[in-house]
Design a protein around this nucleic acid. Structure first.
Lengths: 173, 173
DNA sequence: GTATTGCTCCAAAAATTACTGAAAGTTTTG
DNA sequence: CAAAACTTTCAGTAATTTTTGGAGCAATAC
């Protein structure tokens, strides 16, 4: 396969993956493009390579900066901004986890806590059943959240080595 | 809070969470409604409670069945179908993991494997850099996939107890 | 058999989400 | 300071996704 073809295929695949997980397809594609660019790119380069407008490029680059996945760079003797994506994939994953915990897991945990404060809990069996369902969801979402918190604070090799020991070498296969 | 208000709040929150994770909002709402309904519901009940059309209810109930989260039930003396959602949240989580691995993780792993078969790997430094980026993604996505495979095959209490020990009681807090 | 009830499919419509292009804003240059 | 280079914003438009409602189908009742 030609390099350009492979790059394009990768960018498309990363775009689809993002899209399936609720991330704007173009944002994921811009991220993919920057991930495979050893040097930082200008907005014009991003626009040209992905065939998108200036406004679109700007919007998605800003979103990537908000997510902590991309930084703006200033090259001396250059007036334009350049954009650089963090290349260490463990750091990228940690950053994604940080944001998704903040944006989605925490809010849903808060709602689950709110709705279990329902009236007539002890007299209404329907209310009791509802709270039990909510509680079991809260437990599992809370455990997932705690696990991700550990991942976010962990050194990569410690994290995977510990997982590896824990699960009896299953991660290796 | 009134029970009906709490139920509605929960259904809305679950719909938003789904939507943020690339799941049709209505599908997530239907699932939420069934999760808090101890008994199975008819399509008409789902339609009425969520204010959606018959076609929409039918489509999303079918999607939930495809995901393995809901089963169709036939009540004797009843002509209509009834729908029941699995209530054991660990089983629900496992089923979601199974489907997402199959639908999204596996395909992306396959693409990552394809694109590293790029030409001129040894002569073109650009190709080499590309393949290195792809490899590091493949490693981490592959590890996540393996971890989820373990979760899917694990007994809930074994799984969390092992995690718990592993991470030095951090999951407890 | 026909009538009735309920389910499924799908084309059209509605709603939502994403994108564009140009005007306004900002920073740098000379 | 004005001009040039570049970035940001956003109203309008386009594309995509979701929903509807009814026609056709299937199963049961009579």
């Amino acid at each position: 396969m030609q390099l350009d073809e492979a790059k394009d295929k990768f960018i498309q695949a990363w775009g689809s993956l993002g899209s399936n997980w609720g991330i704007n397809r173009t944002m994921a594609q811009v991220h993919a493009l920057l991930l495979i660019s050893p040097a930082s790119l200008s907005a014009d380069e991003v626009m040209e390579m992905l065939n998108i407008s200036r406004g679109n490029a700007n919007m998605n680059l800003r979103a990537l900066i908000d997510w902590g996945l991309v930084t703006k760079e200033h090259k001396s003797g250059e007036r334009r901004d350049f954009f650089y994506a963090e290349k260490d994939i463990w750091q990228v994953a940690q950053q994604v986890i940080i944001e998704r915990r903040k944006r989605e897991l925490k809010p849903v945990l808060r709602v689950l806590e709110e709705v279990r404060e329902v009236d007539d809990l002890h007299t209404n069996p329907e209310a009791k059943a509802f709270v039990e369902a909510v509680n079991s969801l809260h437990t599992i979402v809370g455990q997932a959240d705690k696990f991700l918190e550990i991942a976010v604070n962990a050194d990569r090799s410690w994290f995977f080595e510990t997982l590896f020991k824990m699960f009896n070498r299953k991660l290796q296969s």
